[in-house]
Design a protein around this nucleic acid. Structure first.
Lengths: 199, 199
DNA sequence: AGGAATCTTGACCGGGCGGTCAAGAGACTC
DNA sequence: GAGTCTCTTGACCGCCCGGTCAAGATTCCT
């Protein structure tokens, strides 16, 4: 839906996205009806279809914006270091903090991953972030800091740890992001066994 | 729904669960209608409601049975060793193989985790498996094999790696379970840095 | 002021949903 | 072969869903 929007219009649109995102996260995408959204916002149904051409489009836009937000945060954090391993660490910490501040959007990622209709859109964004991590891992292997293993595999493992720890401790238990990020970082670097003294 | 079922009845029930599980995994739970299921099975709608009191109940039963299957496989594998770290490794490998052979059920877990209505049921089963892993981690810490960190955190990290790697490489890319399990195990034990020579 | 563009309303629609049920078909018992 | 229990059919129900639209309000431009 490409409409010319005034400032007021853009605000309304943003409000709708924000409200819908929270309803989707709490209730699920399918169980949340358009009627529920417009009633919750105390507007007529036409408002919804003025700003979005369908419920699905709304969801996709929420998803895309969330991915942009997360990515922005990651890149901003990563800039602060040159060392590849340090960059990975900063990326994990940034993700954890963003997920902590945007739990509902984290749930939406999870849902999108579970629905074949939405998974491709989720992936498109994820692949970009993954490429970064893979690059850092490759650099780390080149400098001898990281053990020699499939970089793609390692990058996915990092992502798996971060996401799962976020879900479990941030979303379910409302733990603060800092300590969870510490745990994710040390697990990703040292695994279970550990050994090396960190610089 | 507790009915006396004949052998034929039990088979029919199992067929319905199997078929529905695959449809749910491919299409999503909500988008798959009861009509679609009974049409696909070429039976009347009454058959469905003879064996299940609702669509939701069917899903819950599929979920519970899948969890029982996975757990059985894990326990069977774990029995083969005494060493806690080795047990963890065997658990990861068993999970990976089960997930490889039951991809559709893996997707269902993922969906269940994303829907608040189903998440508690999923968790109930997951907690049992988690408790095992936590115990092994604790033992590993006690014997000095595993670095001293929050066992619950470590256990969740292991689960996160296993699940994410399974999703990415088993479900999406149809990779064989063995190598993916190898990667999961070595990442969980050594992390990115590696260092220690494995026994 | 007045016309155009942006925004809002809410009744309405067709359709598909989960679920019901009266009727009957088979299988098994005695 | 009468009676009982298991199983099957598919038309049917009420509901609510995503989406439409004619009408009107508000804001903006000149």
């Amino acid at each position: 839906m490409n409409r010319r929007l005034t400032t007021r219009g853009k605000e309304r649109r943003a409000q709708l996205m924000e409200f819908a995102a929270r309803r989707f996260a709490e209730n699920g995408y399918h169980p949340t009806s358009v009627a529920e959204i417009v009633d919750g916002m105390r507007v007529g149904k036409g408002v919804f279809y003025w700003y979005f051409s369908s419920k699905e489009e709304l969801f996709l836009e929420i998803l895309a914006e969330a991915q942009r937000g997360l990515r922005r945060r990651q890149q901003q954090a990563i800039m602060e270091a040159e060392d590849p391993v340090r960059r990975i660490e900063l990326g994990i910490r940034a993700s954890m903090e963003w997920l902590s501040a945007n739990r509902h959007l984290g749930s939406l990622f999870q849902f999108a991953a579970s629905e074949e209709r939405f998974a491709p859109y989720l992936r498109r964004g994820q692949d970009v972030a993954m490429a970064d991590v893979v690059r850092h891992v490759q650099e780390g292997i080149a400098t001898g800091q990281v053990r020699d293993a499939d970089p793609v595999m390692l990058a996915h493992a990092i992502l798996g740890v971060t996401n799962h720890l976020a879900r479990t401790f941030l979303f379910e238990r409302d733990d603060p992001a800092g300590p969870v990020a510490d745990a994710a970082v040390s697990f990703c670097l040292e695994g279970l066994l550990g050994s090396r003294v960190l610089a």
